[in-house]
């Protein structure tokens, strides 16, 4: 992946991998896991909405639309599940860090356009999905106590993996233009 100095995934690394809740796999409650899932999906929905405004590249728009659709669906499933389970999503420092990092990156994206935007957006999508996949595998699934919540996390992993691969292919395709 070609590095873009303006848009490194470091912020997400900080939010997901280095923050206190994700660094050493400490206990995270089901309520916090539920909120992390919703926040992580909402961030990528927002990223996609920015892409639809800033990009004029068909493949980028297609990817952004897919992210919006899929992450909206995951959020709907997560919300339905936590409602059924009677779990009230709960904020924590990880969520604040995640959202803060996303705010910063999205501000950078909004200031970009053209091919620079396309590359920055897709690089961020690659980095973001890698980090979220890592968090799901290493933190969220091991800490989930409720079996249905754990199953939802397991079930959603293939989607994040597919999104990652899609973003990587879209990014590689940009390199030929």
């Amino acid at each position: 992946m070609k590095s873009n100095p303006l848009f490194l995934p470091a912020a997400l690394l900080v939010a997901l991998a280095v923050s206190p809740a994700f660094a050493a796999a400490p206990a995270v409650s089901d309520a916090q896991i539920a909120q992390i899932v919703v926040t992580a999906n909402s961030i990528d929905i927002a990223n996609g909405q920015i892409a639809l405004k800033q990009s004029r590249t068909a493949s980028v728009d297609e990817f952004a639309n897919l992210m919006i659709k899929d992450h909206t669906a995951v959020n709907a499933s997560a919300t339905a599940l936590v409602t059924k389970l009677g779990v009230k999503p709960e904020a924590c420092d990880t969520i604040k860090s995640l959202q803060s990092a996303a705010d910063t990156e999205q501000a950078k994206l909004r200031a970009m356009n053209g091919s620079a935007f396309d590359r920055a957006y897709l690089e961020n999508e690659v980095a973001y999905h890698k980090q979220v996949l890592g968090a799901i595998s290493d933190v969220l699934i091991p800490n989930a106590q409720n079996a249905e919540l754990k199953k939802m996390l397991v079930d959603v992993k293939p989607a994040f993996q597919a999104h990652l691969e899609h973003a990587q292919h879209a990014l590689a395709a940009l390199g030929t233009h």
């Binding site: 897919l66 899929d70 669906a73 959603v156 293939p158 989607a159 993996q161 597919a162």
Partner: peptide, 8 residues
């Protein structure tokens, strides 16, 4: 579709 959660 397990790869695309919106695909139901």
């Amino acid at each position: 579709c397990i790869f695309h959660p919106s695909m139901t």
